[in-house]
Design a binder for these strands. Structure first.
Length: 417
DNA sequence: TCTGGGGTCCTAGGACCC
DNA sequence: TCTGGGGTCCTAGGACCC
């Protein structure tokens, strides 16, 4: 039984959420200050806009817009390829600044983190707001980056706060003021509430986050699943989603997918695409010393219907050959000639670390040989750059690639995310 | 937003077992 | 071969995130 002191009506937590403003572009400007104040986008290598400056946004450009369209319609916009090495470097430095003030920092994505300031305020004799302000100043001075910060009693509310004023915002939500903020926040803007749940809630006359937070708990339990009950608690100021400061060291799944246009029913092409995905997913798995016990292949039709094929592997593996023949044997189960497909993909699941790469269907000895071969290939690619060696079955898809090398280069850096 | 790529977590319901 | 009731395990797919 817990023996909390009688007067420990807990002081609300002070959770900080920091979010980079147009982060990739922000880093580009920090690297090259001449870009400041100009419309800039990144994503040239992908063919779609990944990040855009506020000046570019003002022109009506949006994330995901095709690069060719920008070239055609906005000749004054500066288009840059992503420089993920720099983004990672700045990201690390940004989080290190937060760590000067908090022990528990959760790196949520490349440009976002959470931190618990609750205990720190006493220690530093500063309020959470003052600490947040200092962090902002140091990020700006030392890295020349602009960030938005929110401080609130829970993670979900801290996200509301950091979004409240963007860019360069600093917003504190006190426990007593929660309602003021939630009344002006549409339910769909809440972290964890997507389009489906949002639409459902609308049918129940829940329009704002305030409407939702004021439902009673029973109603939430009866109408929604567990994750939404947790969001409900958090919106009411009850700290429920803990900060997880552990650095990410592994993966529970690895996937590779690619869309193409126009949609096609060319079986050889689809197979070669998937074959390439298998190789890349296995490459990444080997890099992290992981093996998969399950694999899912999928193709997505023109109308966004998924056809999936999930297979249990006899032994876990991270070498492509056996997966490749499995695919060829069973592809007919998902492929229909009369359909057109727009995307293919592979997901390695049930990953276990440090397992022996037992090469399954071929038996151990052959598998060992494959493993040795792959070690050499990986080493070779390390030296020469990726994509110097590949399976014959991948060949067709590679020869069709136009912007291969850039994309591969970036992919390599993304391995470290 | 007529929809890119890489992830995570949750759960309904089927398979299987007394 | 009529077919109860209750439990666990597991998977496929849904929903969401950046």
């Amino acid at each position: 039984m817990s023996k909390l002191p009688h007067n420990s009506i807990k002081k609300p937590k002070a959770i900080l959420h920091m979010d980079g403003d147009a982060f990739f572009v922000g880093v580009e400007v920090a690297k090259n200050p001449k870009l400041r104040g100009l419309p800039v986008v990144t994503g040239e290598e992908r063919g779609i806009v990944s990040a855009l400056s506020y000046e570019a946004k003002a022109l009506g450009i949006t994330r995901g817009m095709p690069i060719f369209q920008i070239k055609r319609n906005f000749s004054n916009v500066i288009i840059l390829p992503g420089d993920y090495k720099s983004y990672i470097r700045y990201s690390t430095k940004m989080f290190d600044i937060v760590r000067r003030y908090a022990d528990d920092v959760e790196e949520y994505s490349i440009d976002e983190c959470f931190a618990d300031l609750t205990g720190v305020t006493l220690h530093l004799k500063m309020t959470a707001f003052q600490i947040a302000k200092r962090i902002k100043e140091e990020v700006s001075k030392e890295l020349d980056l602009s960030v938005s910060i929110g401080v609130a009693p829970t993670k979900v509310l801290a996200k509301v706060a950091s979004k409240w004023q963007k860019p360069n915002g600093l917003t504190l939500i006190k426990k007593d003021d929660i309602g003021i903020f939630l009344k002006e926040t549409a339910i769909g803007k809440i972290w964890g509430i997507g389009p489906k749940i949002s639409a459902f809630l609308h049918t129940k006359c829940v329009e704002t986050a305030y409407d939702f937070a004021n439902k009673d708990r029973e109603w939430v339990r009866e109408n929604l699943s567990r994750p939404y009950e947790i969001i409900f608690e958090e919106l009411n100021g009850v700290y429920t989603i803990p900060i997880d400061p552990k650095p990410k060291t592994s993966y529970s799944s690895i996937q590779k997918t690619r869309s193409f246009s126009p949609a096609t029913n060319n079986k050889a092409f689809l197979l070669s695409e998937i074959s390439k995905h298998i190789e890349e997913a296995c490459f990444k798995a080997r890099y992290f010393n992981l093996t998969a016990k399950k694999i899912t292949f999928f193709i997505k039709t023109k109308n966004f219907r998924y056809k999936t094929l999930s297979l249990d592997l006899l032994h876990s593996t991270n070498t492509p050959e056996a997966l490749q023949s499995l695919l060829e044997e069973r592809f007919y189960e998902i492929y229909e000639k009369k359909e057109l497909y727009r995307t293919t993909g592979v997901v390695l699941r049930d990953l276990r670390s440090n397992g022996f790469a037992q090469g399954n269907l071929f038996g151990v000895t052959k598998a060992d040989r494959f493993e040795a071969v792959h070690k050499k290939i990986d080493a070779l690619e390390e030296k020469l750059g990726k994509r110097v060696v590949h399976l014959a079955s991948t060949h067709e898809s590679l020869t069709r690639e136009k912007i291969g090398s850039d994309a591969e280069e970036i992919d390599r850096h993304l391995l470290f995310l």
